[in-house]
Design a protein around this nucleic acid. Structure first.
Lengths: 198, 198
DNA sequence: CTAATATTGGACTGATTGGTCCAATAATAT
DNA sequence: ATATTATTGGACCAATCAGTCCAATATTAG
């Protein structure tokens, strides 16, 4: 973390003649994302990563710089995609966007691994400002999306309610990690209705 | 994690003649707790721990077995003490135990470090069954304490409401880690009233 | 005082960590 | 074909990791 190694190799620009990459950068990033998601930042070794990505160490460092840079890139990608998903779910919910969001929340993508961004927030935020800042932006966006979904059916205090709802949803991720049965989590999520429409 | 090293040294029984310990075991455990709380399990090295505890490596391994065993002991201690605190707060709250709990929640002990147990849950639970089980028991106890605090003023669905309230509170820990301002977090916690008394 | 028993400090180990380096290879543009 | 430019694999490095071991020391019971 406070390593300051700055060993950036040289990240080649993809221009000019020369041998082309034998792998897809986006695909490799996706694989790395999975490893970080499942194991966390510290526990994911460069060996784990290169193996999962199907890359040699040279390609790894040549393409992504170093472990931390790759991680930040993966996390930004995760955030962007997650927010897009949430927006899509809300939009596809028709006249009940909140209901659609809640349903999606009851069956999260990561399963027992939870939300990667929240995981990384608790693991790294106090010691990595970039992660903390990204986390803050991500949470803010979530609040806004939920607030917008709330607005039509309820005029007042939408942002406060959205924030409470989001916090409750985030809290259930911890339960999931602990192995609390899905049924109980769903039940708890239903209670979140009270926060929204009293 | 999946190391299975089983290198248990030998944990001496505190009986018989011989040189007495130059340190207080409980105090040392407390120091270790702080390190784990602040840095997490993986990032806390045995060097960090021994330095903070003021112990030599011999005393460290001789007394606590190994890093993982020390960690589990610290976490159990943390859980026990935290639940006792919560019960005390509720009891001292007089006719408004829920209000007392909420106030305590607004100024948590760990500050930006959050709740150690939740931190460890997200870091380790999927790969350490003992942590997961301890986490489940801890969360269950929290639910029960809140439910009991809720009961006098509200007869029905106390457990469901307590669970929703607890999840919301746990969610705010992530906000705190990200550096969301205290004011906003307090505001969000106030919204939790809606979950409790609609 | 002596024998027995603990604790202590620190040197040490083998494994693993993130990161570097380079010769070999492959593809391009001319 | 040739020169140029990239990528690739794998050997390699210093640092750090958790954990072991032992001689030196301190304390007790008798």
């Amino acid at each position: 973390m406070s390593k300051e190694t700055h060993a950036f190799g040289d990240i080649k620009s993809p221009a000019g003649p020369g041998r082309p990459r034998a792998f897809d950068e986006a695909e490799a990033l996706e694989k790395a994302l999975c490893v970080f998601w499942h194991k966390g930042y510290e526990t994911a070794s460069v060996d784990d990563l290169t193996k999962a990505m199907g890359l040699s160490r040279s390609s790894f460092y040549g393409t992504f710089g170093n472990k931390q840079a790759l991680f930040h890139k993966a996390l930004r990608h995760y955030s962007r995609r997650g927010l897009k998903n949430l927006r899509d779910v809300a939009d596809a919910g028709g006249n009940d966007p909140v209901g659609a969001i809640m349903e999606a929340l009851a069956n999260p993508q990561g399963g027992r691994d939870g939300c990667m961004l929240i995981n990384c927030l608790t693991e790294l935020a106090p010691h990595d400002d970039e992660v903390a800042a990204l986390g803050r932006r991500h949470l803010e966006s979530i609040d806004e999306i939920i607030a917008r979904a709330l607005e039509p059916s309820d005029p007042g205090q939408v942002l406060d309610k959205a924030r409470a709802f989001a916090s409750l949803a985030i809290g259930t991720l911890a339960l999931r990690k602990a192995g609390v049965p899905d049924e109980q989590i769903s039940q708890t999520l239903k209670q979140a209705r009270l926060v929204i429409s009293p």
